[in-house]
Design a protein around this nucleic acid. Structure first.
Length: 875
DNA sequence: TACGACAGAC
């Protein structure tokens, strides 16, 4: 594209914007607005050509017999009447006598009008066989016929061999290339045309600007703009309007606005183009504002105006304005019903007025695939996924072929409802109809599989894609992150070579860092965010604060939080939750109150965060107060998560009976998390009897979760009820359940070192165990008795000590102490809750070596400094 | 012998 444009004659004043200080054409000065043709503009004159050809016909015909002349007249008469069949018969009869050029032109014209390609080709054949000279006019007619009949290949073949002095001929061929999407070929022809000295006209510029718009390069748009001004076509509305559209499609809305502002007599298309530019560039409010200006300037809205501005109303949920436009349409706008109804239907459903959308849909006599898609999408928007998918089936039953939009919408319905099976059926349909290679379809397929939890299927689509865009990568990275596959997410993120991560990419990758607690990788992404100015994106800023909080860098998280200019509810919630998981309940409460003062109302998620923070800091009264505020001030009906937090709060504080009664009074059926919270409390306060009662509820609700069996086993072990432990282990064995192996990890330079319980495979295993042995000796010397209860296995004491010594978190901490520089804190993460004995050991080590240890377990953070832990026993 | 605006999707 750039190469072909570089071949254009130089536009002497380089910048299109500078050039736009145009001269007023003389006809305007004289007050005549009817002719807008710039002076010196060579235009093709039909009358001139007719005269020439008539003259040549006369010369050619002089020697012909009277009968040929009659036949010519007859063929032309038949052509005028539209009787192609008879005209062709007569033409074939006259095979051996040459017909007049004018007659051949008439018949080709009729073939073009009737799109009769075989007849047209036959005429071409006769012309070739009769050795008639293919002059400019006959050549043009042939090209015209072929193109009108949709045979560009043959049209181009004729075009290549004939004289090309006629601008109409060039425009004809170029327009066809633009129509079928061969924009580069069209632009290349434009270059050839200028080189051969043919001057472009307004139609040429409309066509070229359309191609530049489709290719999306504002730079090329400016080059053409400069040429438009140089050749004085900047007073043509069609060209100016095409320029507005071109700049808007190239995402340079300010240049589009410059063109629009300088126009002297804007027509309805100029207004529509500018409104459409705003809407498609994500500026719907400007679009609606311009509509008002258009109205006050006295230009009447037409069908295209409504179809352009209704999506803007939809985007901004301007239902009232949408209704007003609907009323106007009924009264004043005539035109194709289907297009307008599609826009209205979409507007209503996007403005949450599904009923009005359904009403329009059911009243529509003629429906296109767009109509069906808009209605399916409306149901998805309204959360009625089943109806959406059923409508997709009905559409097929009615014989409407789904297109790209329809299948992506149906896939979206599957994604939102988690219907993997339905999604797979649509995938089959897509394959059967050869749509799977389309970028948007493949992206929608991956999104569907990711949201339905099948990353294996998503991967298979991703790996088979011929072309991938940023959305494809973001969908996969986000899919891995949300499906608890953070390693895969970060691995894919690091494979992005050709494409530059955008704000969505980093917002998808950061939760993976948060989940793995990989602070170094998170910092690296933070660097990318700063270098590319992505922090202003609220999603990015929130994900960054969350990442730092979850990687144990709470101070840094707060620092960044304070730097967010426009804090939204998520920003506050993330920070409150951060304080909560670090056991800083008081800070969480301060922030929660500050948020409300700033005018942001908490939602159910922020209440979970504050209740969690209270329970992890032992703030019972405060927790109860927030629960009350949520129900009675904020009028939010508590969900299971809120109840679980309240049970946790009461149980941790030792009010086990109260917690039990609280569960019994719940208006909804408690789930395993609610009972599980009480079970944890039973462990902390060593209530074996209640634990057994509670555990049965938990086992019934979630029989596959080994974590709860282990929890009860812990409770028995701590009470030294070894017989009960044995029975429970037998039960686990009978049910063929496997304990999730404990694992901890620590980052060192660019590598994450993973340790499993009893793991001796690490290359530094010897060094680590010897360090832990030294710790053990020191601890014993200082009167520490190892808390063998936590080993959970009924062995003799020395055996238990060995098992304790091999707990994964302990190995990771030892590895950190031995390898990290002394000023750096030791950051370890564990997939399960920290073992009680390891918790004691971590406290001891922090004092013994004078290092800060930050341990994140599956529940919260423990920050060990100088022999103390930030959790103060609330874990 | 034509040109410019317009609905639904990840």
């Amino acid at each position: 594209m750039a190469a072909s444009l570089a071949a254009f004659p130089p536009a002497h004043c380089c910048s299109a914007l500078q050039l736009n200080q145009r001269k007023v054409p003389p006809e305007r000065i004289h007050g005549c607005f009817f002719t807008k043709r710039p002076f010196k503009q060579p235009e093709f004159s039909p009358s001139h050509v007719t005269c020439c050809s008539l003259r040549s016909v006369v010369t050619l015909s002089e020697s012909k017999s009277q009968s040929t002349n009659d036949r010519d007249t007859e063929v032309r008469r038949l052509c005028e009447m539209g009787d192609l069949k008879s005209a062709m018969e007569l033409l074939l009869d006259s095979r051996h006598s040459q017909l007049e050029m004018k007659t051949l032109c008439s018949i080709l014209q009729l073939c073009a009008d009737l799109k009769a390609l075989p007849d047209g080709a036959k005429v071409h054949e006769i012309i070739s066989a009769s050795n008639i000279l293919l002059d400019a006019l006959l050549g043009l007619k042939l090209v015209f016929m072929y193109i009108k009949c949709g045979d560009l290949r043959n049209g181009r073949m004729v075009f290549d061999v004939i004289q090309k002095e006629n601008i109409f001929l060039w425009n004809l061929v170029m327009n066809e290339y633009a129509r079928i999407g061969e924009y580069n070929e069209c632009i290349s022809l434009f270059g050839q045309m200028l080189e051969s000295g043919i001057e472009a006209n307004s139609h040429t510029f409309s066509c070229i600007l359309k191609c530049v718009a489709a290719l999306g390069s504002a730079r090329d748009g400016k080059k053409i703009h400069a040429l438009v001004i140089k050749m004085r076509f900047d007073s043509y509305n069609a060209v100016e309007n095409a320029l507005i559209t071109c700049y808007s499609k190239c995402k340079n809305i300010s240049l589009a606005q410059v063109v629009f502002d300088k126009m002297l007599d804007r027509d309805v298309i100029s207004w529509n183009s500018m409104i459409g530019g705003y809407v498609s560039n994500g500026l719907p409010e400007k679009g609606v504002h311009l509509l008002r200006q258009m109205w006050f300037s006295g230009v009447y809205m037409d069908l295209a105006t409504l179809v352009t501005v209704l999506p803007a109303c939809a985007q901004m949920c301007f239902l009232l304005q949408g209704r007003v436009l609907h009323g106007y349409a009924i009264k004043c706008v005539r035109g194709e019903e289907i297009t307008l109804n599609n826009s209205l239907l979409s507007m209503y459903t996007k403005c949450q007025d599904l009923d009005s959308g359904v009403k329009i849909f059911s009243k529509m006599k003629k429906k296109s695939v767009v109509t069906w898609t808009a209605m399916i999408s409306g149901y998805v928007e309204g959360g009625q996924f089943y109806k959406a998918l059923r409508l997709f089936e009905v559409m097929e039953e009615e014989g409407v072929m789904p297109d790209l939009y329809a299948v992506t919408t149906a896939l979206h319905a599957c994604a939102c409802s988690g219907s993997l099976e339905h999604g797979k059926q649509i995938h089959d349909y897509i394959i059967r109809n050869g749509l799977e290679l389309h970028l948007f379809v493949a992206n929608a397929l991956m999104d569907m599989y990711a949201k339905c939890g099948s990353m294996v299927d998503a991967e298979s689509v991703f790996n088979n894609m011929e072309e991938k865009d940023l959305v494809s990568w973001n969908t996969m990275i986000g899919g891995y992150s949300k499906n608890s596959l953070p390693n895969e997410a970060l691995s894919l993120f690091s494979q992005m070579e050709d494409l530059k991560p955008n704000s969505v990419t980093v917002a998808c990758a950061l939760p993976a860092c948060a989940s793995l607690s990989t602070l170094e990788k998170g910092r690296e992404i933070h660097g990318h965010i700063l270098r590319n100015g992505l922090f202003s994106d609220c999603y990015v800023a929130n994900a960054l604060v969350d990442m730092y909080a979850k990687c144990g860098a709470l101070v840094l998280a707060r620092l960044l939080f304070d730097h967010i200019q426009m804090k939204d509810l998520v920003s506050w919630t993330v920070m409150i939750a951060g304080y909560g998981m670090h056991g800083q309940g008081r800070h969480a409460i301060l922030l929660f109150n500050e948020m409300r003062k700033s005018g942001i109302e908490p939602d159910e998620v922020s209440f979970i965060a504050i209740l969690y923070a209270c329970s992890h800091s032992g703030l019972i009264d405060e927790g109860r107060r927030f629960f009350h505020i949520m129900r009675y001030d904020s009028k939010i009906e508590p969900k299971l998560e809120h109840y679980a937090c309240m049970v946790d709060l009461l149980a941790r504080a030792g009010r086990l009976t109260k917690a039990y009664q609280f569960i019994e009074k719940m208006p909804t059926q408690p789930d395993s998390t609610v009972w599980g919270a009480l079970l944890c409390g039973c462990r902390i306060h060593r209530d074996v009897k209640l634990a057994e009662k509670v555990a049965e509820h938990v086992f019934e609700l979630e029989p596959e979760n080994t974590g709860y069996y282990i929890l009860l086993a812990n409770i028995y072990a701590e009470a030294e009820k070894w017989e009960a432990v044995k029975k429970l282990r037998e039960r686990i064995g009978r049910q063929r359940l496997r304990k999730k192996p404990g694992c901890s990890w620590i980052e060192l330079k660019d590598k994450v070192h993973v340790f499993f319980s009893g793991d001796r495979s690490h290359q530094q295993a010897k060094k680590i165990l010897s360090f832990l042995e030294r710790v053990n000796v020191r601890m014993k010397k200082e009167g520490y008795i190892s808390n063998k209860r936590y080993a959970l296995i009924d062995l003799d004491d020395s055996g238990k000590e060995e098992v304790l010594c091999g707990h994964s978190e302990r190995l990771a901490i030892a590895f950190g102490i031995l390898n990290l520089p002394s000023r750096k804190p030791i950051r370890v993460s564990k997939n399960l809750r920290v073992c009680g004995d390891c918790h004691e050991v971590a406290k001891f080590i922090s004092k013994m070596v004078g290092r800060e240890i930050i341990l994140r377990d599956s529940n919260r953070f423990h920050q060990f400094i100088d022999g103390r832990c930030s959790c103060r026993g609330f874990w």
